[in-house]
């Protein structure tokens, strides 16, 4: 008898196969079939949902409450929608410290205010000790559509813009857990990406937030839809010193690490410089960079290629096996 494995939640290929093979056939409809971060519904509305099971619930730079607001807000932003309303579902384990819950609720309130969303409906359940782990949160979000992402319209020469450094969220969780005995001066990048909304009007064709699976997995998903191969340059990818050092030490590839406040966007060549300059004006986009392009000459359609710092060229594959369970 086959059972559910942790790997199905990794955000990698196993999870996508699982969703395509199990979930889609059960409910298949036009909106769901796109498997987008949020679905566009009649009336110019975008709708999304996400559950948060991060362990530990408090980590440098955030907590499960802040994550639950920003994660859902960001799914709307990258789907071309201005976030408006959230629902809040709490699953609490018997024995959770009330002070911890208060701290999380305050954090949710602050994050919602910062992202300009209101929590308008909710639900609370308590499960017996051992049947859950302290607190799980589900948030659904509704936003107003401002643009329709067009991954199939990318053309050779279009630029790939990354809005900031990679991997701080993964490393912060790793540090907070004490895994590998690693201590690093790093805070999660967990943040709302609403500052990116105006750029849909400046020519952004496609945008995704970089969560589980990391930059490489998310760009392979674009590569599958785009009519031309994508190529990114290792040297152009911004990394903090802490992430670079930890990655070298542990042999972890930052291209597969999760963020909670970074996005990657594709912009036509002529508009790329202006969009980049605009993103860099915002404190969360200070280290934004053009990291690659849609390519007309190298590789084949469907491929994501990496030009390594050594000058070599290799294919990037989506993440297949779990790096860190329960990271968000």
């Amino acid at each position: 008898m086959s059972r559910i494995s942790l790997e199905l939640g990794s955000g990698g290929k196993s999870m996508r196969d699982f969703i395509a093979g199990k979930i889609l056939p059960a409910f298949g409809n036009r909106e769901l079939a796109g498997l987008l971060d949020a679905s566009h519904l009649p009336g110019g509305i975008a709708f999304t949902t996400d559950s948060y099971v991060v362990d530990p619930i408090f980590f440098p730079g955030g907590d499960i409450g802040k994550l639950a607001v920003n994660g859902t807000v960001n799914d709307l932003v990258v789907s071309g929608a201005a976030p408006r309303f959230l629902s809040l579902g709490l699953i609490l384990e018997e024995g959770l410290e009330e002070a911890d819950l208060d701290r999380i609720l305050r954090s949710i309130r602050t994050a919602a205010a910062a992202a300009g969303v209101r929590i308008v409906t909710g639900d609370t359940k308590v499960v017996r000790q051992g049947q859950g782990d302290k607190i799980y949160i589900n948030t659904s979000g509704i936003g107003k559509v401002v643009a329709v992402p067009r991954p199939r319209s990318v053309r050779p020469g279009d630029r790939i813009i990354l809005t900031g450094t990679l991997g701080e969220h993964s490393l912060a969780i790793l540090t907070a857990r004490g895994d590998f005995g690693i201590e690093a001066p790093v805070r999660s990048d967990c943040a709302p990406l609403i500052f990116l909304l105006p750029f849909w009007k400046s020519g952004v064709l496609w945008m995704r937030d970089i969560t589980r699976g990391g930059l490489a997995t998310i760009l392979t998903e674009l590569a599958e839809q785009a009519p031309h191969p994508l190529i990114i340059e290792e040297e152009s990818i911004p990394l903090s010193r802490a992430v670079r050092a930890a990655a070298d030490l542990l042999g972890i590839d930052p291209l597969y690490l999760a963020c909670e406040g970074r996005a990657v966007a594709v912009v036509p060549e002529k508009k790329a410089a202006a969009v980049l300059a605009g993103i860099r004006k915002h404190p969360l986009g200070r280290r934004a960079a053009i990291i690659g392009r849609v390519d007309g000459t190298t590789g084949r359609p469907g491929e994501l290629l990496l030009r390594t710092a050594s000058g070599g060229l290799r294919l990037l594959e989506p993440l297949t096996s779990e790096l860190l369970p329960r990271i968000c």
Partner: peptide, 26 residues
């Protein structure tokens, strides 16, 4: 494949098969 390995060389991070699969040349 890495998510359904048939032999150990597709399992280990140093296994030649996993390396060829993961870091394939175009």
């Amino acid at each position: 494949k890495p998510d359904s390995p048939y032999g150990p060389c597709m399992v280990s991070f140093e296994g030649a098969c996993l390396v060829y699969h993961k870091y394939g040349a175009p």
